[in-house]
Amino acid sequence: MTGFILAGLQFEPALGDPVANIETSSRLIREAAAAAARLVVLPEAASAGYVFTDRADARRNAEPVPDGPVCSAWAALAAELDLWIVAGITELAGEKVFNSAVLIGPDGHVGTFRKAHLWNFEKELYDRQEDGFPVFETPLGNIGIGICYDAWFPETFRSAALGGADLLVLPSNWVPVPGQPEDLPAMANLMCMTGAHSNQFFVAGVSRIGAERGQPFLGRSLIVGPGGWPLAGPASNDREEIVLAEVDLIGSRAERLGNPFNQPLGDRRTDVYQTGDFTADLSGATA
C-alpha cells in the first residue's frame, strides 16, 4: 500500500458518557470511511471526556485496553470498515490510570501510547508512563503517537523520527494560549508545522471543540506534510469537522529523507548538545 486518505475527526466528546462517545465517534468514522479514509484520528480523551474532578473521577471513567467498551467498539468498526484508528482513551491498567491513545487496525489492537508530558492538573489524575515513544509498523507506514502537550516538546517529534516514523499523530485537546494574536496561526498549529518540517515527516494534530467545566477547547485540527505546510485544515475552532488529506507515507520516504540540501536527522550535532535534567533557579524571582 502506498498513498491513502488520512482523516482527522474533530468533535466534542461528552464528559462521562462513553455510550454517547461511541455513537458520535462511530458516526464520524463511518463518514470518513465513506470518503475513502484508511486511517482516522480522533481527539485526546475521546472515550469519556477530559476535565475530571480528581483521580477517583478519572478512574471511574477509565477502561481497560483493549477490552473496554469504547475500545472494543472502535475495534469492531476497524474490522468492519477495513481501516486503522488512533483515538484518545482514558486507560485503566491495574491500579494505574493513564491518558492514552490506542492504535487499532482491521485485525485488532496494534498498540497503546501513554501521554509522556502531563499538563497542569493532569499530574494529579494520571500515572507517568515510562515507555518512551514507540513507533508502530503498519501497512500504511510507520506511525508514532504523541498526545496534546507532548507537541510542546521537540523531543517528541525527534524521538518518533529517530524511531523511523513516517507520521506522528497527535490526538489533542488544545486550549487557547494567552496572548494569541488573531492574525497568526494557533500556537498548536505552529508546533505541528515546525515539528513536521524539522523531522521530515507527516503530522496529524486532531483536537476537540466545545468546553468542559469552564475549560474551552480550540479545535483547529490539521494535517501537515513533511515540508511543514498544511495539507488539510486548520479546521474551525467551534465546528464538528472531518479534515482529509491524501498522504503517501511509504512512497515518499526517498524524497523526504534524501533531500540533497539538508538532513535534519543526519546533520545533528549530538557531540555538542547539552543533555541532563533542567532545574529552574527561581531564587531571584519576585512576585
Rank of each mutant, 00 (worst) to 15 (best):
F153P: 04
P185V: 15
A186E: 03
F153T: 04
G163Y: 07
S236Y: 14
R239D: 13
T138P: 04
L231S: 04
R213N: 15
R220C: 10
R158D: 12
I143P: 00
G164L: 11
L184P: 03
V177M: 08
E240Q: 15
L218Y: 03
N199Q: 11
S207N: 11
D248Y: 01
R158V: 09
I145K: 02
D248F: 00
A188H: 07
F153V: 07
A160V: 15
L168G: 02
V169L: 10
P181C: 11
W229R: 14
Q215L: 15
L140P: 01
R158N: 12
V247F: 01
A204P: 01
V206S: 00
G225K: 02
L244R: 05
I209V: 15
P171G: 06
D166C: 10
W229T: 12
L162E: 08
V203S: 00
G146T: 06
W229N: 13
N189P: 04
R239W: 07
A161T: 15
P226R: 03
L184T: 11
V169N: 02
V203W: 00
F202I: 08
N173G: 08
R158F: 09
I145R: 02
L190H: 05
G233K: 03
P178G: 08
V206A: 04
F157K: 03
I147S: 03
P176A: 10
L170W: 07
W229V: 12
P185K: 10
R239A: 15
L231Q: 02
Y149N: 11
F201D: 01
I209N: 00
D238Y: 09
G146I: 03
F157D: 01
A232Y: 00
W152L: 13
L170Y: 07
E212W: 10
R239S: 14
G179W: 09
S221M: 14
N189G: 08
V206T: 04
N173D: 11
P181H: 12
S207G: 12
G179E: 11
L222M: 15
I242D: 00
P216L: 11
W152N: 13
P178T: 11
H197V: 06
V206M: 04
V247D: 00
V243S: 02
T138I: 11
A196I: 05
